[in-house]
């Protein structure tokens, strides 16, 4: 049997790796890879908590919703990245520094 703290530790490590990518990457696509890692870490925690009450399954349903939201979020993100690319001809987040359309 796997102790819950070990699963939570793996989730915490994965979350911190994703946070590092989110904070330190310059390329917008690489930043979104970090966000995907963080969402997966959160999902891992949902499944870990679900294991405490395996007859309920609420954690797994929540994880399915998170996966759905991640897909929707990345579809919008890809559209934004493409329009950023049209406007600035690169996807470096520190160069896209004006709000004018």
């Amino acid at each position: 049997m796997i102790p819950a703290t070990h699963i939570l530790a793996v989730g915490a490590a994965l979350f911190c790796l994703g946070l590092f990518a989110l904070l330190s990457r310059r390329n917008a696509v690489a930043v979104f890879m970090g966000i995907e890692l963080m969402l997966n870490a959160a999902n891992l925690n949902f499944v870990a908590f679900n294991q405490a009450r395996p007859e309920a399954l609420d954690g797994q349903v929540a994880a399915v919703f998170v996966i759905m939201l991640a897909a929707a979020e990345f579809a919008v993100a890809l559209a934004l990245i493409l329009s950023l690319h049209q406007m600035f001809h690169c996807v470096h987040l520190d160069e896209a520094d004006e709000m004018k359309g």
């Binding site: 870990a48 405490a52 395996p54």
Partner: peptide, 24 residues
């Protein structure tokens, strides 16, 4: 920033008495 977040998460994981898993 990552070290701070990792510290907070590890503290939370270690301090709180998480329920034991009973996988079926």
């Amino acid at each position: 920033a990552c070290a701070l977040v990792a510290f907070a998460l590890v503290l939370g994981v270690l301090i709180y008495p998480w329920p034991e898993s009973a996988a079926s």
